[in-house]
Every structure is written in C-alpha cells, then in structure tokens.
C-alpha cells in the first residue's frame, strides 16, 4: 500500500504521457494528465503555506530564539493572503485580474515583495566583485584559460572593448574584442554547453526510465 500504489501511479501516468506523444488518439489523455498535474502543483503552494504557518507558529508559541521575526513572517503572509484572496482594492472587484494596478495585492508586490526580491539578488554583485579580487587566480593552464575567456567576455560586452580595439583592420577584425567575444559565445561556448547539455539529457532520460520502470525508488522515502 505504501510503496506499490505510488509506484503504480508513477508508472501509469508517466507511460501515458510517453504514449500520448506517439499515439495521436491518446493525446487528449496526455493533456488531461498534465492539467491534473498543474492543479496538484497548486496544492504544493498550499502545502508550503501550511508548513510555513506550522513552523513559525511553533517558534512563536515556544518563544524560541528570534521568535519576533517569525511574527513578522506570519504577519507578512497573512496580509498578502487576505489582500490577494479577497482582491482588496481591486478596481474590477472579484472579477478583476489579481495584479490589476491599484489593487492592494499589486501595491504590496510593487513596494514590498519586489524591492526585497531584487535587492536580495543585487547583493550578489558585491560578492562576485569580492570573489574576483580574492579567489580568481591563474594558478594553472585551465584557470588561465577560464580567466582569459572571462576577460574577453567582460570587455567585449561593453563599449570599452570597442574603444580599445576598433583600430584593428577589417582583415583581422575577429581580434577586435567585441568580435572575439561573439566568436567565443558562438563557437567554444556553444560546443562546451552542447557537450554539457547532451550529458545532462542522457542523465534525465535514464533517470526518467528508471522511475517509470520502478527501479528508482528514493522518492518513496528512507523506509522503501
């Protein structure tokens, strides 16, 4: 019951989707299965929300370290949920687009979620700069190749690359840094990425087959 049924469900759904690609009459079954998958995916959002409430409520009730921040999390969650589920301030009421401008949901997105999200990632600019100074060393041939390629791309994708090398004649134009950057992207980068892509695709294909055939069972948990 705990293992056989999930394996059966997995194999049935997966096989149906593979078959639906090759058998036109089975196409609508594939569409339905995928639609069901999309609806189940939404419950994963609800599960995440439920788990967040559970974890942070526990922290608050036990007054564990940093519990006050859990209150902030719960408050943020609650406010967003209420404004979104009831479409508060939406000019078109319940029928309106959830992100309609003027709605409180959209205002919270624009002025709270958006700055938080983008600034979190903007921090990485500083870390990349620091890493460039501290970690990128031309210790061996491979590291030197990596650094030279990075240099060319960094220079070639800005106006500085043009300024530095636009004196190079047309007969040698590939040596102009912007052209060299384009060539690196179109030839060696493409080749490397393609080799990685083929490797990953083989991994995905074999893992999918293992799952469909019931060989891979780690998703069932430790006691499988």
């Amino acid at each position: 019951m705990k293992h056989q049924i999930p394996m059966l469900i997995l194999s049935a759904v997966g096989t149906l989707l593979v078959v639906s690609v090759f058998v036109p009459s089975a196409q609508h079954w594939g569409e339905d299965a995928t639609l069901y998958f999309d609806i189940i995916a939404v419950f994963a959002f609800f599960l995440g929300g439920g788990n967040l409430i559970r974890v942070h409520t526990e922290k608050v009730s036990h007054k564990s370290a940093g519990w006050i921040y859990s209150v902030v999390t719960l408050l943020g969650f609650g406010i967003m949920l209420v404004t979104g589920l009831f479409k508060i301030g939406n000019p078109n009421g319940i029928a309106g687009d959830l992100s309609k401008s003027g709605s409180y949901f959209q205002l919270l997105f624009q002025y709270v979620m958006s700055p938080l999200n983008s600034t979190m990632y903007a921090l990485l600019a500083f870390y990349v700069a620091s890493a460039s100074y501290r970690a990128f060393r031309a210790k061996n041939t491979e590291a030197t190749i990596l650094l030279v390629a990075a240099f060319v791309i960094l220079l070639g994708r800005t106006a500085l690359g043009v300024l530095l090398t636009n004196w190079i004649p047309a007969q040698l134009s590939v040596l102009q840094i912007p052209n060299l950057a384009i060539w690196i992207m179109n030839a060696p980068n493409l080749a490397g990425q393609r080799a990685i892509m083929i490797g990953i695709s083989l991994g995905v294909i074999s893992m999918s087959l293992r799952l469909l055939l019931g060989i891979e069972r780690t998703y069932l948990g430790g006691d499988s």
């Binding site: 990128f136 240099f151 106006a159």
Partner: peptide, 23 residues
C-alpha cells in the same frame, strides 16, 4: 544601464588583475 555596466566591468577586471599580481 550600459554605462554603469561598463564601469563595473572595468572594476571587476581590475580586481582580478590586482588579485593575481598580489598572488
């Protein structure tokens, strides 16, 4: 944005060069 981008790239390149000189 390409102006700030260019300046920042110059600085990153300079950091890599300085780091390697020190190394």
């Amino acid at each position: 944005m390409m102006g700030p981008q260019t300046m920042a790239h110059v600085v990153i390149i300079a950091f890599i060069v300085i780091g390697n000189i020190a190394y």
